[in-house]
Design a protein around this nucleic acid. Structure first.
Lengths: 210, 210, 210, 210
DNA sequence: TATGAATGAGATTTCATTCAT
DNA sequence: AATGAATGAAATCTCATTCAT
């Protein structure tokens, strides 16, 4: 390895560290103080970098928030995908989707701060990009995974992308109040109805070619 | 009418006008510019009152927002209650609730700005108080109406208040995306499933005394 | 007594009550929150009168402060004069002055809030007027009393008024730190030196006509 | 000199300039308009810096006032110490203290604006810290100088620190009215008595070990 | 790259005072 | 005489962003 290459990698490692530190600190403040009451001064101070440095990595406060939502959402899907892969007994497309949903719901249930942050700040554009672009290196491209799932499935779907977003929406909107307020019912009470609904959505999207 | 009474009424009318003007202007800005990008200067300037006057009626920006949500929510319920009263053919408790839900959903559907504002800023405490406390004189006490509905119904319920909130939550959480994004489906497609769910919730709450 | 007279007296009693209530409340706030941090709103609210009423009795915040200092100072002198009168054994002019000083010092020592208020806000003009003009009805005209003391004294003085102010200044400036901080010494340690100084001042002012 | 060192010194010089400009301007306004009638806007405008810059150097208006008192007090002691050092004929501890007192009194006498500012705003905590902490670089640590004076003196004292504050208090409280109002007497008339009192205080504090 | 001092517009809030009732 | 709603200037303070170093 050349000296130059080593230097670059060191610099890159440093850059990554700075960006991660900023993301991590911002998340901490956003979830405790709230977005509008968190200042960039707060973030850089705790992250241990200079104010100007913030603007080397993020355009503004909205940018870091959106990247955080994308990053955190991506992690939810990465964990769900890993769980799915660990269980080779699940082979059916619908079962796979439900497995992923179940995993994400359980993650949000055990991390309600994350649930609050994502839900309170979610907008369609951000969420969609979260599934398509990686913020940090350990993020995954869920679109790719989803595409593979579609490819190896014997079924074809009318609008697979819309279908995915419909499911995500259904899950998040109903789980928000179930997890945080146990209303209209507890999560465990909700799940059967929810998974039936998911199955129905998928079924309705299958292209019957006969 | 005595001179004194006339004077008081003039002052009070003026006060009401000021407060309404502020509420109205704030709502306009909150729904167009967004809450955090709306300044109190914006509001008072357009409302045509002095800055200090704002603080005679509201504690701060959060206060006027909460009062607006409460006020607007109350109006939704007032309109729904009026619609229900206008149709004497609806006598069953469950049908009445569904009629109210249907009315509220239609109102939100034809006033999506209001839906965005309420949903983005809703918190349980504010919403609950909206149904119990009047912000302005033409607000209604929906709790009272609900109580009467319960009293004249032949059924008894385990937790009628919780049941009400469960329905409200279910309706608003599912309608938000259906109305604004037509996802997971259009409002018309959603309604049958939703009203079935409402019926199920009510049914589950009835006390079977046999 | 005529009806008119009775009415006037009732009105006057009411006026006096209002003014006293304002003075009393202002003093409470000035000594606890401090002058600049006390608002007229604070005062009128606690005094139970309308804001406009304040301006019927006082020109502005400075006016009520000055009147308070004058009033409180006058009370100090009234009490001191009463104490002096109660002790017919004191006949010498110098002994009388010292008796008065001693009484005032003891009053300030047992009412350190008052000491702080008077000292922190004292200016020569206000203090002088306090001895010459009555703020409320139970204030006294100390100048008159002082004049009588001078008249019945066998001595004549070069500048009796200046002499009086010199003594007041000497007493208040040295007692302030002695009472509040016990520095440079305690009040009891200070007193003998102080009273010697007062005697010296008086002595130096006597006109020796031989 | 390295480029880095030069840069740092340039920035630091600039910072010092800004802070000094703010301190200087604030002092000018505080002593002419008075503290409460001086706004931060006044200060920054005349100092030629942005409003936000003020808050980089001072917490609020009270902070800059306290720092000014400390700074100005420190300068008084610095000048006095310099004067003392310039006169090697003064060797006795008591004579040194009196020399310092005399110097400070003369400074205050020829700068009555400063006297008014310090006296009207003085509180024990601020004054004490003025002798122990440096506000700007040309301030001195008078505590150190005082300690050296104590060390080279053949006498030991019971409570040297309290003794110092007693003297300071005695001097300032008596000189205030003497200088500004020439009451109870002129400064020149006061001085002999005052210096006798200082001698007495010091004498009373000497530990007689025989 | 990285820094952090400086900016200055603008936000919120206060409050002495007025004046119609 | 008494009220208190209304005023609006002005005060304090924040903070995203820039830029010279």
């Amino acid at each position: 390895m050349s000296v130059t290459a080593e230097r670059v990698s060191k610099v890159d490692k440093n850059k990554l560290q700075k960006e991660n530190s900023l993301l991590h600190t911002a998340f901490e403040y956003f979830t405790t103080k709230g977005f509008s009451k968190t200042s960039i001064s707060d973030i850089v101070e705790k992250a241990g970098v200079a104010k100007g440095t913030f603007y080397l990595y993020f355009k503004d406060k909205y940018d870091i928030r959106n990247k955080l939502i994308a990053h955190k959402s991506s992690q939810l899907f990465r964990n769900a995908a890993a769980e799915l892969e660990a269980d080779p007994s699940i082979t059916d497309f619908t079962d796979k989707i439900i497995k992923i949903a179940d995993s994400i719901i359980d993650q949000l249930n055990s991390n309600q701060t994350l649930l609050t942050f994502i839900s309170k700040n979610l907008s369609w554009g951000i969420f969609k990009s979260a599934l398509e672009k990686k913020v940090s290196d350990d993020d995954i491209d869920f679109s790719e995974i989803y595409q593979k799932m579609l490819n190896i499935s014997p079924y074809k779907f009318e609008a697979p992308e819309t279908m995915l977003f419909m499911i995500i929406e259904l899950v998040s909107s109903t789980c928000y109040s179930a997890i945080l307020y146990k209303e209209p019912c507890t999560l465990d009470e909700l799940k059967p109805y929810l998974y039936d609904a998911i199955r129905a959505i998928i079924e309705r999207n299958k292209i019957k070619d006969n």
